[in-house]
Simulated scan of single mutants.
Amino acid sequence: MRELKILAVVVVFTLITYWGVEPFAHSQMHPHVEPADYEFKDVDGLNGLQGNATNGAALVQANCTACHSIEKEGFPPVMDDATSAASYGVVPPDLSTAGKIYNADYLAAFIKDPAKASKVEHKFKDGRIHPMPGYSWMKPQEIADMVAYLQSIAPEKMSNKEVFVDACQRCHGIKYGDMKGGTMAAKTPNENIKAYMGKLPPDLSQYIRSRGESYLHTFVNDPQKHLEGTAMPRVGLTQDAEQQVIDYMEQVGDSKKAEREALGPKFLIYLVILAIFAWLWKAKIWRELH
């Protein structure tokens, strides 16, 4: 009977720690943030306008290809990555997949005012100018046409790695590589991206384990929710594209997750069986002593 009382005390204190102390500690170290907004309701987006891809093609080619490549449409990079980074601070993205991985309303808002849409206006003060000029002087329909064109040339399917490369590799690298051993360096050289961002962006090889999936979803969707004043821009990925980025980070940094989770129930069953045998052994010993 005394052992059962001791067990009850241990269980009670364990439950108090699990449901009382631990959640409180977590709330202090990880304050609550609002869920990710994949509709980008706070941006000045398309406002219901339907774009014309044919008109958008002419507008994009006239206004964007001086800085951006569109490899799929036969517009190669104007400069190599190092020269582009030295000129703009960061390598401009190729636009071949922009219509696939970025939310349409965010894309329209970014074309109008890049710093505002990406929530980095605090970086561009005292004469500092965002490397991409805003096109708010354009008619809303023209911007809708440009978005429609980018969507029309975007691929129907992309691998997780392809989405990661287009969404993240301009600033972030993967030092330890995926299951096939491939590593990737950030397209923007360290000295340029450090000057542009204020510090060197982290390598993302192990971020899935150090931050966790839930944190990454809200952070990628809107970094300011977690780190107010951070230089990390709001990327504007669709929910599907963001999930592909995080799936790739998991593939790289936590490739044994499925195997580990499958082992959990088996280990718990082992502990239950061990506890039963331990109890029976203890009962046998005490019977002999009494």
Rank of each mutant, 00 (worst) to 15 (best):
K5H: 10
V9I: 15
V11L: 15
T14Y: 15
T17D: 05
W19H: 14
A25C: 05
S27E: 04
M29K: 11
P31T: 05
P31A: 05
P31K: 06
K41C: 06
D42T: 09
V43P: 02
D44Y: 05
G45L: 04
L46Y: 04
G48H: 09
A53P: 02
A53Q: 12
G56C: 04
G56E: 04
A57G: 02
A58I: 15
A58N: 09
C64P: 03
C67H: 08
H68E: 13
G74S: 10
M79S: 08
M79E: 05
D81S: 11
T97Y: 00
T97M: 02
Y102D: 08
L107P: 02
L107D: 02
A115C: 10
A117Q: 02
A117G: 07
R128Y: 03
I129F: 01
M138W: 11
K139T: 14
K139L: 07
A148F: 05
Y149W: 12
L150G: 02
P155A: 08
P155H: 10
P155D: 11
S159G: 15
N160F: 01
K161I: 08
K161H: 14
E162M: 06
A167T: 03
Q169D: 15
K175A: 13
G177F: 10
D178M: 06
M179D: 08
K180F: 15
G182I: 00
A185V: 15
T188N: 06
N190K: 03
E191A: 12
N192A: 13
Y196E: 06
P201F: 07
S205D: 03
I208N: 01
R209G: 03
R211Y: 14
S214N: 14
D222E: 13
Q224M: 13
K225R: 13
H226I: 00
L227Q: 14
E228R: 00
T230Y: 10
T230E: 07
A231G: 07
T238G: 02
Q239V: 08
D240Q: 14
R260P: 00
E261C: 03
G264M: 12
L268M: 14
L268K: 12
Y270E: 09
L271K: 14
L271Q: 14
L271P: 01
I273S: 14
A275N: 07
I276T: 09
A283C: 03
K284E: 10
L289V: 14
L289P: 00
H290R: 15
